[in-house]
């Protein structure tokens, strides 16, 4: 879509403008992250004297990281976040792809209601249902568990995943599945070995869209799993933020560390996204 815009010579001036705009936006978006990272490597004094300065030999310090690393709880929170995010992501992608395939391929009783139901899930923010979600989790006896968070995040991510994936699946030529059906290939094998591989770019897109809100979420960990056992990084960081004293070194260091896994996951998936966007053009 964009690549064709950039390639045509007619739009070269136009594309320079778009690039400039996107560059400006990128700088703006990255600035806070940049601030967090540079200040994570400064002494407390350095942070407060000049928050915008890069660390110098006088202000450089890894005290925050040392403190965070020494704090064994942090790794516990970190692994909680990772398990919850990856667990939810796995089910969002698997179930999302399955629902999308079912809705776009089969007519069954209640399929149009199901589609409508998923659309509502996109429109209505899940936080509106916090009270009843809490009630449900309490009655399931899942308070303060990772399972509770995983379940809620699956519900949060599914509608959008189904929407994007079913749009994408509708574009897969129907002859492919018809050929497979003639070839005596089972419906499961058609889904897992033809549809899923061909949907990979869309799945990567959905993965990236889904990871960030889950990893960054503070709301549901706070109300569903505030206990020590299932505490996530975002919630764990709060322990450094006191009512009277805030340990900025540790806060910034842990936030810096928290960016790393998201960055890695993004890099894994983005390779496929870019491939997906260019697939149609190159063909």
């Amino acid at each position: 879509m964009f690549s064709s815009l950039f390639n045509s010579s007619k739009n070269r001036g136009n594309s320079a403008f778009i690039h400039l705009f996107l560059l400006a936006y990128t700088l703006l978006a990255l600035f806070p992250v940049f601030l967090i990272i540079i200040n994570a490597f400064k002494t407390r004094k350095g942070i407060f004297n000049d928050p915008l300065a890069l660390p110098t030999s006088a202000t450089f310090s890894t005290k925050g990281f040392e403190k965070v690393m020494a704090n064994s709880d942090f790794f516990h929170y970190f692994s909680n976040s990772l398990i919850i995010t990856l667990g939810a992501l796995f089910f969002i992608l698997l179930l999302g792809a399955m629902i999308a395939w079912a809705l776009s391929e089969y007519k069954f009783f209640g399929s149009s209601f199901m589609r409508f139901f998923m659309a509502i899930g996109i429109i209505v923010p899940i936080r509106l249902g916090s009270v009843s979600i809490l009630e449900t989790i309490v009655s399931l006896d899942l308070v303060n568990t990772k399972t509770a968070l995983i379940l809620v995040y699956i519900a949060q991510g599914l509608p959008m995943a189904v929407f994007i994936l079913s749009e994408f699946m509708a574009q897969i030529p129907k002859e492919l599945k018809e050929a497979a059906r003639c070839d005596d290939v089972s419906e499961y094998k058609i889904f897992f070995q033809i549809i899923l591989p061909l949907t990979r770019p869309a799945i990567a897109t959905v993965a990236v869209f889904s990871i960030i809100p889950i990893w960054n979420d503070l709301w549901f960990p706070l109300i569903l799993a505030p206990g020590e056992e299932a505490r996530t990084v975002t919630l764990g960081v709060q322990q450094f933020i006191g009512q009277y004293v805030t340990d900025w070194n540790s806060v910034l260091a842990s936030l810096t560390l928290a960016v790393v896994p998201v960055l890695i996951l993004y890099m894994i998936f983005s390779k496929h996204i870019i491939r997906g966007l260019t697939a149609g053009a190159v063909k």
Binding site: P173, E175, L176, E178, A179, A180, C182, I194
Partner: peptide, 9 residues
């Protein structure tokens, strides 16, 4: 069946 569009995976 052999399809017009070949329908190769």
């Amino acid at each position: 069946m052999v399809f017009q569009s070949y329908a190769l995976y």
